[in-house]
């Protein structure tokens, strides 16, 4: 059973008298453990696809099966539950809460999961996720005290804390320098290889897309190419730095 199955997905926006066909029939299956990079220029529909895949938006037409369940017509609150339990988001701008420690940021998804976890359990799981990202000694720092790479690793820890089956990364390296970008991509690759987590990456940079096992190109609301890829390895990078030096 594919983790994601899109069946003739369409999305139409109405802007005044104009209608914008953002997606014009997308069909796609993503299996467990795939690292799919979705690329395309701005206005191609990749953001709309990302929103629907992330259960932030509903398709106008067609079906979206997440782990075999049709989520195309769920209510807002039902979608919130799906996002909480099955999807981990990594955003371009990190989207960490300011004046809030790394541990508290990582705990946020746990605040909304039901049954409600006791505070001590939330804290333990947040610290565990931060440890997995190598941030144990930064757990009680505020985002402003962290480097860009550390902030993005806090965001990844937050995406992982509720043990989702799917990670959605929207331009995760957009605000990072090259060395840090490579480090973040290495982390995502590790997640896929060690924990079999399915990853969908949205990017407009071909060299970032190259880290995926499969690259899908979108243009004008349809898939124009869908090819398997031999993922680029961090060790291939001549300028690769050891993890400790990245921070």
């Amino acid at each position: 059973m594919p983790v994601i199955s899109l069946q003739n997905l369409k999305k139409v926006y109405k802007l005044g008298d104009n209608t914008v066909n953002a997606l014009r029939g997308v069909s796609l299956d993503i299996e467990e453990g795939e690292f799919v990079a979705i690329t395309g220029p701005s206005g191609s529909g990749k953001s709309t696809m990302m929103h629907i895949l992330g259960c932030l938006d509903r398709p106008t037409e067609g079906h979206y099966l997440l782990n075999g369940n049709d989520v195309s017509n769920l209510s807002r609150d039902e979608l919130a539950d799906i996002r909480n339990r099955q999807i981990g988001f990594v955003f371009q701008g990190f989207n960490l809460l300011p004046r809030t420690t790394a541990a508290e940021n990582v705990e946020v998804p746990l605040l909304y999961s039901r049954p409600v976890l006791p505070a001590s359990e939330r804290r333990a799981r947040a610290l565990e996720a931060l440890r997995a990202m190598g941030l144990t000694d930064r757990a009680f720092h505020h985002p402003s005290q962290l480097s860009g790479g550390q902030q993005q690793r806090v965001a990844i820890a937050r995406a992982l804390v509720n043990r989702p089956t799917l990670i959605l990364a929207d331009e995760p390296t957009g605000n990072l320098d090259t060395a840090t970008s490579i480090e973040v991509m290495r982390l995502l690759q590790e997640l896929r290889e060690k924990q079999k987590i399915t990853i969908v990456l949205i990017t407009h940079e071909p060299d970032i897309a190259a880290y995926g096992t499969r690259i899908i190109a979108v243009r004008d609301g349809i898939i124009i190419s869908d090819k398997p890829n031999v993922p680029r390895r961090v060790s291939d990078e001549p300028e690769a730095l050891p993890l400790a030096a990245v921070g």
Partner: peptide, 12 residues
């Protein structure tokens, strides 16, 4: 928006 993306329902 962030809290909603991370699973907050309207009542939260």
């Amino acid at each position: 928006g962030l809290r909603m993306a991370l699973g907050a329902r309207r009542r939260d």
